[in-house]
Design a protein around this nucleic acid. Structure first.
Length: 175
DNA sequence: CCCTGATTCGC
DNA sequence: GCGAATCAGG
């Protein structure tokens, strides 16, 4: 019954491998498996030689180099009352791909918080939802990636993998 | 403010 | 082999 030792059993390794290849992040996997930290997951992944997974449909990490599909310069100024928010124009307002979520994603999708312009904070996703000219216009409002205007979810949509970011991670010899 | 994976190193 | 601490970055 009780767990004798929450080590990496065969089943856990298989689950880890499946979830990792499925595109889930280390923290997500850790939460799914339970009893392990994301560091433990990452460590195990490396030991298994699963690191450097294919950066394709998910690339939940450094996939976004700096290659906006649309125009990063063409921003849209949204004015509401005395507030003005400058939000980068998304690639396409009409077609919002729903393929972002993994095909076999057991966990919940990142639900959009849907905030108004008044509730929008600097660290919130500025992905426009709806027509800016209508009163029911909302922003995603989810937690945005620092330095970027979008959350992880919308960043994957806005910044599609065009050029692979060269991982020039040096072998830490000093610090 | 949040998150991601990569690496090191004591255990 | 394991994973917390740390690093480097989005």
């Amino acid at each position: 019954m009780v767990d004798a030792g929450p080590s990496w059993t065969k089943e856990r390794v298989e689950l880890l491998t499946r979830l990792w290849s499925d595109g889930l992040s280390a923290s997500q996997i850790a939460a799914e498996i339970g009893g392990v930290s994301r560091n433990a997951v990452i460590g195990k992944v490396h030991r298994l030689g699963l690191a450097g997974r294919v950066v394709r449909a998910n690339g939940a990490s450094q996939a976004a180099g700096r290659r906006p599909r649309g125009e990063a310069d063409s921003s849209i100024a949204l004015v509401a009352g005395s507030q003005t928010v400058l939000a980068p124009a998304p690639p396409s307002l009409a077609l919002v791909p729903s393929h972002a979520s993994a095909a076999s994603d057991p966990v919940a999708l990142p639900e959009s918080v849907r905030v108004t312009i008044m509730e929008l904070r600097e660290f919130m996703c500025r992905w426009p939802m709806g027509d800016p000219s209508t009163p029911d216009f909302r922003f995603c409002g989810d937690r945005a990636i620092t330095g970027l205007p979008y959350c992880t979810h919308h960043s994957r949509i806005a910044y599609q993998p065009a050029a692979e970011r060269k991982r020039d991670r040096r072998a830490v010899g000093f610090r």
